[in-house]
Amino acid sequence: MLAFVCKRLLQSLLLVVIVLTVTFFLLHLAPGDPMARYFHPEIAPETIELIRERLGLDRPVVEQYFKWMGSFIRGDFGMSLQYNRPVRSLLAEAIPNTLRLTVAALILHIVLGILLGVISAVKRYSPFDRVNTVTALFVYSIPSFWLALMMIMIFSLKLGLLPSSHMQSIGAGELGGWALALDRLRHLVLPAFVLGVASAAGMARYMRGSMLDVLREDYIQTARAKGLPEGKVVLKHALKNAAIPIVTLIGLSLPFLLGGAVVTEKIFSWPGMGRLTVDAIYARDYPVVLATNFVVAVIVILGNLLADIGYALLDPRITVTGRKGGR
């Protein structure tokens, strides 16, 4: 198991380097100029060239790449061109915020997805199953920005139940304790729902199918023939088998959640990495874009590694060490 994890981590490291390299060159090949923000009749072109030189942006791209990679490896993510602040401190602010949003969405994704999927499978062709199917298809196919706007319209503007943007109310910091936690939770509901519900719908569909397949297996009949109550047959004997492919699905859905967070954060003014990335891309703020890319790549790769480990833990037929069988 340990050898497997080490091998995977080494592979992942290589993958991260490739991802960063590709991103670096794509960014520099794309049209646009980080200095564009200084283009202004009152700023002399010479001044702009001076800034460009000072930032090293006048050097050949390959030279810039090696210089940047050199400091990146040493943990120096550089300075944001846009905010004139260390990228590291921007990330330190944004990462926990994004994690709060994506973890909430992930929990919704898993819990709601599995719950609805299992009920749908057990009560196949019932009114619940039909409503569930149609709703899932609807939620899955509408664009998330539209869903976000609808949710804001209904729950914030019409009903006034939930706040429509930011992570907490102005001055909520003074509340402290439970009041602050509640205020933050209320701010979390809409963005987490918008971010998680589409993948939850997908998960519910997948879970239903997986569960229906398993419920047809001979060993389910064996479990019933033992005299086990149906609840135990479903939740113990069937669910553990049906969950095996689901673990992989969760790993695969991480990039989509993080990608979705970009749009969701922008709409809900959520000060996370998504918003930071979008703004940085518009401003051609290379160091920030590269650093957020790095963080996302690491999260996705770790998520997949965890999914593989979970897969091996759930399914005794799989040995993580590979072909020769596990120790």
Partner: peptide, 11 residues
């Protein structure tokens, strides 16, 4: 049952 290969729960 007839099928010992599939009648036991694999997990």
């Amino acid at each position: 049952f007839q099928e010992p290969l599939t009648s036991l729960n694999p997990v």
